[in-house]
Simulated assay, not measured.
Amino acid sequence: MAERLAQLTQWVQTHWSETQSAFAAPEKLEVVSGDASFRRYFRARAGQDSYIAVDAPPDKENSHPFVEIGKRWYSAGVAVPQIIRADLELGFMLLEDFGDRLLLPALQTDRGSEPYQPALETLLQLQQIADTELPLYDDAVLKREMGLFDEWFLGRCLGLELSDWQATLAKLYQQLAERAQAQLQVPVHRDYHSRNLMLLEDGRLGVIDYQDALLGPITYDLVSLLRDSYIEWPDSVVEEWVESYRVALVDKGFAVPDAAAFLKDFYLMGMQRQLKVVGIFCRLWLRDGKAGYIKDIPRTFGYLQRAALRYPEFAQFSKALAALEPVLKLHPLLGLHFEGQR
């Protein structure tokens, strides 16, 4: 770790002139944060100028999509960080500094709809980009993501016998994948939520962590934003926002279905994402030692339960989820958070 940081610091100093800063290169970097990956972020500060230095070890992180997508979206007018310099063989990048103001605290302070408006407007802008270079969010990817639920949540976390779930989950995954692929396909960020959106000093909303973007279902990022694993809103409020966004899409010429069908697309797309996220949170905890995500599992699981209850075709799955509640409450770590969620 220390050796990588020393190398990154020297690399930033070597390429500092490309920032066009009037100040001398910084002698050291300040830790900003890590995230759910192996990337580490540092602030390179000199006088009044500040940039973000990224350490993304190439044996653990493929940064090519981040750079390529970032350049295309930046050119299209989306507020993603400008890439000043990137050396992908070393796994180092120097980026525009978006500051530290995430959208999440603003949502927690103001429980109205106003803080969401920039996020919805930015999403609408993003979905209008004609980014044909993005890979497809195809059947294999959709099902592989959902498979994290049975592998990491049911199997490794709860220790359940997966054979008891195979038929139910196979049917569910097929239903959700088909519905997702039947939607209009647009650029999808794939993690568009309050911790990946930043309030910038110039009033814009900054978009980060976009490197996994694909061409996929039009409701995916909308459900990622409005069914956020880190903050929750009443279903009635969410449904109003969904309909307002659908109307905005129609006004922009998107061929989206009527209100009821679009809302069902939203809920079923949410189920696909929530299956994935519950599995990812368990994997981050059990494999990567990142226990901070445990507390967010009950909220995400609750979204999944409520969506399954809405539609009769998921009755079998809904019943299976309800049967898990005693197991979850007795779990030595998850139980505390599930009790607090009730």
Rank of each mutant, 00 (worst) to 15 (best):
D131G: 04
L95H: 01
E114T: 09
G340I: 06
L90W: 06
L226M: 13
D296R: 09
D35Y: 06
Y267H: 12
R72W: 05
L169S: 02
K71V: 11
K71F: 08
L126C: 07
S21T: 01
A86M: 09
V207P: 02
V278P: 00
W152M: 01
A261R: 12
H15K: 12
P312I: 01
L249I: 07
L123W: 06
G340F: 02
S75R: 15
E151D: 11
T9M: 07
Q175F: 09
E151L: 15
Y230F: 14
P257W: 13
L249R: 06
F338Q: 09
V256A: 10
T122S: 10
K143D: 08
L95C: 01
E313W: 10
I208R: 00
V31D: 14
S33E: 11
F266V: 09
G77I: 06
F266D: 05
E161A: 15
P234L: 15
Y303H: 06
A323F: 09
G279L: 02
E27W: 12
Y303D: 06
M1H: 15
Q305F: 07
A76C: 05
Y311I: 06
N62R: 03
G147M: 07
D97C: 04
G112I: 12
D100Y: 13
T9W: 03
G147W: 03
L176E: 03
K290R: 13
E30W: 13
G302I: 06
P57D: 11
D131Q: 05
Y41G: 01
L176M: 03
V78A: 06
A53D: 00
R72V: 13
V242R: 02
G155Y: 07
V80G: 05
L104A: 11
D55K: 03
I52T: 01
G302W: 04
L148E: 06
D49F: 04
G112N: 11
G335P: 03
A170S: 12
A119Q: 05
A56G: 14
K290Y: 12
F23N: 08
T122K: 00
A106C: 15
D228W: 03
L200A: 10
Q13N: 09
L124V: 05
A79Y: 05
L124I: 08
A2H: 15
L200M: 13
G270I: 07
L8Q: 04
H337P: 02
G292K: 06
L328N: 03
E3G: 11
F254L: 15
D265I: 03
Y74G: 12
D55I: 08
R72D: 09
W285R: 00
A6H: 08
F42L: 01
D265V: 00
Q305E: 08
D35F: 06
D35G: 10
A119R: 01
A320V: 10
L284A: 03
